[in-house]
């Protein structure tokens, strides 16, 4: 009885290996409004500053937007979302090198918090790809993965502020 079961398991495994990496099902990318009510008062205040910043970004007020993000970090320096929205801002205003630094910080904090969940991954992948491409480095793979994970947001290869709010 045991051999057929093992055989089937082996076939299944082999099939998985031969057919290459599975195309992952799209996920619903996370928005700030979904995490905004979470955390202690410091985190909540910090997230709300991030949201204010995104609104300023939507209104194309770069300076105030960045100020809000920086304040959000000052209030809660361990808030990964503050670095993520700042990374998005830097990509949008054309400073991809800086964006990559913020993104690294965001990813580290997200992973440490156990918050690197499927809904976040397309943002991190996509922003990394966009920043790499903008800085003249190969980043297409990251962009493709972001589009695969979250086509609704990343099909155009960019993350608008309102898509994160």
């Amino acid at each position: 009885m045991r051999a057929p079961a093992v055989l089937m398991l082996s076939i299944a495994l082999a099939w998985g290996c031969l057919s290459g990496p599975a195309r992952e099902a799209p996920v619903e990318s996370l928005r700030l409004s979904q995490v905004e009510p979470q955390g202690d008062p410091v985190r909540r205040a910090s997230l709300r500053l991030c949201a204010e910043g995104l609104r300023a970004d939507i209104a194309r007020r770069d300076g105030p937007a960045r100020s809000q993000y920086e304040r959000a970090i000052a209030l809660d320096p361990t808030n990964p979302w503050a670095y993520l929205v700042l990374a998005r801002h830097e990509v949008a205003v054309g400073d991809p090198r800086r964006a990559l630094q913020y993104l690294q910080q965001a990813e580290t904090l997200l992973r440490n918090e156990g918050a690197f969940i499927p809904g976040v991954e397309p943002h991190v992948e996509g922003l990394r790809g966009a920043a790499l491409v903008a800085s003249g480095r190969p980043g297409g793979e990251h962009l493709r993965r972001a589009a695969e994970l979250s086509p609704a947001v990343w099909d155009d290869g960019r993350l608008d502020a309102d898509e994160l709010l």
Partner: peptide, 10 residues
């Protein structure tokens, strides 16, 4: 100095 930020819960 940096500004003091006050918020609910503080």
């Amino acid at each position: 100095s940096a500004p003091t930020i006050i918020y609910p819960g503080l």
